[in-house]
């Protein structure tokens, strides 16, 4: 199938790439843009390891065609944020620091998906209840942690954001 030239906007930059119409956004990120943070893990669109933000909303890049998020001729289209775009100015975002400090990431393979899911949650709700956090986390499967330490990490990130400092968890263990 002949490839088509599209533009997509990822992590604040516009990229022009040639893709087959059947290309998934996930493949496009990993292969064409070298953004390998988003992972392929389940192939039945159940596990959430490929989660990215499309227009600020967490979605599965393995169930999204790249063509569907291409910019139109006027340059309009959704902004895509991957895990690589979550870090702030070259430093860890509070949620990233907190996941490290509190054991929210073990093998780390599901972590990029969780980073996208949780940062979207905190963007929309700076003080979610325990139930809201649990609900958000239920989109992504993790096989290492049993999710417990993620709750502590999310709490720590909220606390760190509240205190307006980038380093979560320091000295609080």
């Amino acid at each position: 199938m002949k490839k088509q030239l599209i533009s997509i906007r990822v992590n604040g930059r516009t990229h022009e790439i040639a893709i087959a119409p059947s290309q998934l956004l996930l493949e496009c990120l990993r292969q064409d843009l070298g953004l390998t943070g988003s992972k392929r893990a389940c192939e039945d669109s159940s596990c959430g390891a490929c989660t990215v933000l499309i227009g600020g909303t967490p979605m599965l890049s393995c169930a999204t065609l790249a063509m569907s998020v291409a910019l139109d001729d006027d340059g309009h289209g959704p902004e895509i944020t991957t895990v690589e775009g979550i870090a702030e100015h070259g430093s860890l975002a509070a949620i990233q620091k907190a996941y490290g400090d509190w054991g929210g990431a073990q093998c780390g393979f599901c972590t990029p998906g969780f980073m996208c899911t949780v940062s979207a949650l905190l963007d929309h709700n700076s003080d979610p209840s325990e139930a809201e956090v649990r609900d958000a986390l239920s989109s992504n499967l993790c096989r290492c942690t049993g999710y417990m330490q993620m709750y502590q990490a999310v709490r720590a990130a909220i606390e760190a954001e509240r205190k307006g400092r980038a380093a979560a968890g320091t000295g609080t263990h």
């Binding site: 669109s45 959430g48 909303t57 967490p58 599965l60 899911t117 239920s138 992504n140």
Partner: peptide
Amino acid sequence: ASPVIRNM
């Protein structure tokens, strides 16, 4: 399904 899937 899950919240992320319901977004789509």
